[in-house]
Nucleic acid binder design. Structure first.
Lengths: 341, 341
DNA sequence: TTGTAGGCGTTATCAA
DNA sequence: TTGATAACGCCTACAA
């Protein structure tokens, strides 16, 4: 009820002007030290909270940045957020997270809300169902600074921080081919209109081409980034006659792999004896699984840090250049692909 | 660069007043249909985005609610957030998440920022190092509506949604005592000034008392809610002479249990042969562990939903009552306590 | 050192 | 149906 205390209230209580109160509270030097003390005490005792809404209206700066993540329960993203926070915590910017739940509609809604709130910049990892790049283009032309991370939209004028998805996917595929001699490879892919879906699939194709291994349509299934997608795709493979089974399953990410593993277990089959399987992410669960998962470790924390830094730099420096920053991954060889270690 | 388009710009371009533009854009009925069409088209073509900052200044309503979570990488919280989102997505409220990283200082900073932004309400789960309830009291007296979830601060005038921590902790302890006949029980606790830390410890004590089992000081270690805390606490136990080892380890939550398991494995000991171990949360990892973890399943999603609903109700209804809502848990008996299943 | 006037973008209110 | 005016809380610029 009791409407909030304003500068004016403090001023009246003290018999001085609102302007002086403002100056005192903002630590300007042109205010008498005694006056400042009186103001500070009064503000404290009256429970004053500065109204940033009003402040922002004047300054057209909110010292707020928005983050749009596609799926908060995919452990990779919370880790990225931690990295972002490391940067923003030592700056004067406040962070607002929004979750798109892999839906582009929700993502658009979140971005619009952030823009309406006049955040100074937005970090975006685009959602599963993203389809309308013109939306991003319009966004980039506005006053709001944008930096993409992980799932990038390239060459539309915004910087991007990601990992070398294509090469990493090629490497993990080649590991299966050269170290294990597998030639029957299935690929449970992500959607091709999302950069990481596309890049990782390309890496898989590169490896197959290089080793002259033919692609088998029924083993290449476009699913999604979530567990249920991996589960569903694997079910499709398990429905094949047994002599048409692949030897190894390559997944677009770890959640997909975990879903696939569940499907395999339900069928009473085992890893790595019946299927070798690999993921991509190095999810917190990867190393804890009954059969630890071979995967590509992504430096999530670092991705967050770099993206946040780039965004703050772009906000504070008019002519910060646009760039694509690619961080490096590490292959994590574990038991799920049939290795000893 | 090009500063944002405002109502006034549209008005000038159309040769009408800003007020009419405002009315048209807000779908008021007292505006000519032709005028409305002209305005809508112009707004679209000029790329108008409403300035909620200004709007909020007038209405003192922001249609925004803040969420303060203590630890975003603890999988329980992202799941709660999903529940919160289910509610807010079908309302006109926008969600802003902040993460306190288990630090009260960071939590206070986040809350202050949210208040300065004049969010209409805040959902809070308090942080590890919380110590100053007067901060919350002051908050509750302000215009901002507050609802606590999971980690509550009770009897200070705000509603709270939590699970029946005490009874659940008692039940899982009794399971170890009555089903397995253990009497040498260790408890790796959370901090006692956080409600769930306190309640769960009480539940453990209740079970011990009821069965007349004496407490052993060296087996009761106050750690924290994160993996490293469980790891460290378990190390302490493993430093004891072997004949002073407890039979079972009860943890304040799953991350703590996972940390403890790591310490046990590093020592070359095994579960459940050398130690039975149980957690509390039913983290996404619990069932995936090499030896699946016996734990208490918390309805995280539901906690989020209920808390969000309560908050929105409190915001929109002046005299919504204050209440403590307690949701029920389920015991998940798995192999880590030495059970067959 | 302090105060006054004006404006940030929007809406409520009253008048036309 | 439309417009003019004032107000939300704060800050910049200028004046005292």
């Amino acid at each position: 009820m009791g409407s909030e205390v304003t500068l004016k209230h403090i001023a009246e209580a003290l018999g001085i002007s609102a302007m002086t109160v403002s100056r005192a509270l903002n630590n300007r030097d042109n205010v008498d030290e005694k006056t400042r003390q009186r103001v500070l005490e009064k503000a404290q005792s009256m429970g004053y909270t500065p109204n940033h809404v009003a402040k922002s209206l004047v300054s057209s700066k909110t010292y707020t940045i928005g983050v749009v993540i596609p799926e908060i329960t995919h452990a990779f993203f919370p880790e990225v957020v931690r990295g972002i926070e490391e940067v923003t915590n030592s700056s004067s910017y406040q962070l607002f997270l929004t979750n798109a739940n892999e839906k582009f509609e929700q993502e658009k809604k979140a971005i619009k809300a952030l823009r309406s709130k006049r955040v100074d910049g937005i970090l975006i990892s685009s959602s599963l169902t993203v389809e309308d790049y013109s939306f991003y283009k319009q966004l980039i032309q506005s006053d709001t600074e944008i930096v993409f991370f992980d799932r990038c939209v390239e060459n539309i004028g915004a910087s991007c921080v990601s990992v070398n998805d294509k090469i990493s996917a090629r490497q993990i595929t080649e590991h299966l081919i050269t170290e294990h001699g597998f030639t029957k490879l299935a690929y449970l892919s992500g959607p091709q209109h999302v950069s990481v879906g596309r890049e990782r699939y390309q890496g898989f194709l590169d490896a197959m081409n290089k080793h002259d291994i033919p692609l088998v349509d029924k083993w290449i299934i476009e699913g999604g980034f979530q567990e249920k997608a991996g589960y569903k795709a694997m079910k499709q493979i398990l429905d094949l006659p047994r002599d048409e089974f692949p030897e190894a399953i390559i997944n677009v990410n770890d959640p997909s792999a975990i879903g696939a593993i569940q499907a395999i277990n339900e069928e009473g089959l085992s890893i790595p004896d019946d299927f070798a399987i690999v993921g991509f992410t190095d999810d917190i669960r990867a190393n804890l699984l009954k059969v630890p998962l071979t995967t590509v470790h992504q430096p999530a924390y670092e991705v967050g840090k770099r993206a946040a830094r780039k965004l703050l730099d772009s906000i504070e420096n008019e002519d910060e250049p646009t760039e694509n920053i690619e961080l490096l991954t590490t292959l994590k060889i574990r038991a799920s692909c049939g290795c000893n270690s």
